[in-house]
């Protein structure tokens, strides 16, 4: 059955959110969520990379790997393509938005191994999406990831002035917040369920 790309788009933002439903891409999610501004910057970068790589990976997979029966090469191909794409994004950000480049620091190149990104490319293959669906899936997952990290950063900024028990400061309380956010996102699960 052909699923409407818009449904995939909404589902990947809310019900199948990469972080809050699948728990993919946690590393930078926890590390770069101290401030809304940088979180938003990384969110944009991830969205861009996700959309770009899901389209490019779709094209390479279906037009090069499948015709030659080389599907088993998809991990290595996806990964080098993602790496090259991130490198390109890094060059562009460094050149044109140096402030963002410095505040993202090491986490910009680390998008390369953000498992949300490889995850999107692999889900797209497993779920047998077509090009349009893949593009919307990539874009939606990116927006979902950005939404989650900005929301988390917002909460963390608020919590800065709160008396958090000493043992829970930093990543500890952050993991609890993420868990609560994931529970909240379960509330969306009735809207659209796409697996």
């Amino acid at each position: 059955m052909e699923i409407n790309p818009l449904v995939i788009f909404m589902a990947s933002i809310f019900t199948n959110n990469m972080i809050l439903a699948n728990f993919l891409g946690m590393c930078s999610f926890i590390a770069v969520s101290k401030e809304i501004k940088t979180a938003w910057g990384l969110g944009q970068a991830v969205t861009f990379v996700l959309t770009g790589t899901s389209i490019l990976n779709y094209l390479i997979y279906h037009h090069i790997l499948v015709p030659y029966d080389l599907e088993y090469l998809r991990f290595i191909v996806f990964i080098i393509l993602i790496a090259a794409f991130v490198q390109l994004v890094e060059m562009i950000v460094e050149r044109y938005v140096p402030t963002l480049y410095y505040s993202l620091g090491i986490f910009l190149p680390l998008i390369t191994v953000n498992c949300a990104i490889l995850g999107v490319s692999l889900f797209m293959v497993i779920r047998d999406y077509n090009l349009i669906q893949s593009a919307f899936f990539g874009l939606g997952s990116g927006i979902g990831w950005a939404l989650a990290i900005v929301a988390l950063a917002g909460i963390r900024q608020k919590i800065k002035s709160a008396p958090v028990p000493q043992g829970l400061e930093g990543p500890g309380i952050t993991l609890i917040i993420i868990g609560l956010m994931a529970l909240a996102f379960i509330g969306f699960s009735g809207i659209a369920n796409v697996q």
Binding site: I64, L65, Y68, L70, L73, I76, V77, I80, L81
Partner: peptide, 11 residues
């Protein structure tokens, strides 16, 4: 040959 060729050209 095809595998190596395709990997090389993608890279």
């Amino acid at each position: 040959v095809i595998t190596v060729g395709i990997m090389s050209s993608i890279s």
